[in-house]
Write a protein that binds this DNA or RNA. Structure first.
Lengths: 224, 224
DNA sequence: TTTGGCTGTTTTGTATTCATAATTCACTTT
DNA sequence: AAAGTGAATTATGAATACAAAACAGCCAAA
């Protein structure tokens, strides 16, 4: 969305706050401590407040007039809604990718897949997810739709704090790997409809695991 | 995205700038004149700059460090990409709406449809589009997915400046009306899959008309 | 005539200050 | 002990000031 913001203080501050939220240093539902963050970052309140506007647009925080900003809770409902939307977006990315992808890009995705599989075999979950994400990024890039990529990325920021590793089952992991192999097949066949369906289904599986992880607030608690 | 911002200066400023862009008072590709807008709105630069961050997140303006903000051009490519994504989102809204919609909501959509048809018969295009939009909003609301609604709305802001009326054909209009009647049927039948398809196809038709309207920049011109 | 350098002006990004709203604390009343 | 009130403190939103970057204009040199 925002182009070329990396060398502005507000952009830097937004990124750092986003990281702090994702790493659990700023907990869901809690107030953003403007003064403390300014001291911590060594900047004035102006760029920090601008950063909060950016983060609010991303759905990372909510702005409450005269009461400051609060970290958005990740409720089960919001998670389901977000995954549903992302499913539609990723489905579209799969369809478009099969239309536009090059042989080189397919080969690169295959290479990433083999690297990911190596980590799967070694049960190293953190790098597994890293390569998993890179594969999805590559498919999204192959869609040749920048609006799609940015929209998806914006939603992805919100769920970055979900810790799948705490609720991974062997069954899910096996299914995820099978999904990925089917994705490769679809890319090779340029079967966009099937890839779209697999990506949507893949995200549904992921939602089940995400919903079982520890950062999800009960809906009743969230409305209090 | 941003909750409860209607009574803040930055929120008000963002809305007014958005309107000015959509009404052609701030033209695509042009610099946002901060100083002049501050004088015009009677506010200081702080909330105005905050407003620009919000608008950048929406894709209405682009922020160029040390060079200020510029109204986003609406290129053919961006339009196609945006419609493609919105098609996926509206398709999903149709599927979800058929799952959740109440009889009262269907009746309300039918009433809106009749009102819209009256304007169609009288060839009053402006109110036709107003009711058209209300029908789509009602379907989106019936999806019961707030993330979907907000994501779609954010994208919709970007294309608000498209003036369909300048390139409307009788053929398109007839097709659009037929699409709408089919939508009602699907809602009555709760046929989500078919509604999703109609909504996607409906947007494809709309893209053809949008692409023929006068605010679209040639891609080559946009990169200069 | 064109190009490059310099200077002055304007714009941009950020820091600081000011005014207002909200919260907290202490004291009094019930 | 609980509730209410008022004052003090803190936080928030916006205005203003400051420093740096960018731009425009002018003049001299090639």
């Amino acid at each position: 969305m925002i182009k070329i913001q990396q060398n502005t203080l507000y952009g830097e501050a937004a990124a750092r706050i986003r990281d702090m939220i994702n790493e659990g240093l700023l907990l869901p539902g809690t107030r953003i401590p403007e003064k403390r963050l300014c001291e911590q970052f060594g900047i004035s309140r102006t760029p920090l407040r601008e950063a909060l506007k950016v983060l609010a647009s991303e759905g990372m925080v909510e702005l409450l007039p005269n009461r400051g900003a609060r970290v958005m809770r990740l409720t089960r409902q919001m998670l389901e809604e977000t995954y549903s939307v992302m499913g539609a977006l990723e489905g579209l990315s799969g369809e478009l990718a099969c239309r536009h992808i090059t042989e080189e890009e397919i080969a690169d995705i295959q290479a990433l897949h083999y690297q990911m599989m190596a980590y799967y075999k070694r049960k190293e979950i953190r790098p597994y997810f890293e390569f998993n994400q890179r594969i999805h990024d590559a498919i999204m890039l192959a869609s040749r739709n920048e609006v799609l990529r940015e929209t998806h990325s914006s939603l992805n920021h919100r769920i970055q704090r979900v810790r799948y590793s705490t609720s991974m089952t062997d069954e899910y992991w096996k299914q995820a790997v099978a999904d990925h192999e089917a994705m490769i097949d679809c890319l090779l066949d340029r079967d966009g409809e099937r890839l779209g369906n697999i990506l949507r289904e893949h995200l549904r599986h992921k939602l089940v695991v995400a919903a079982a992880s520890g950062v999800i607030d009960d809906d009743l608690a969230a409305s209090s």
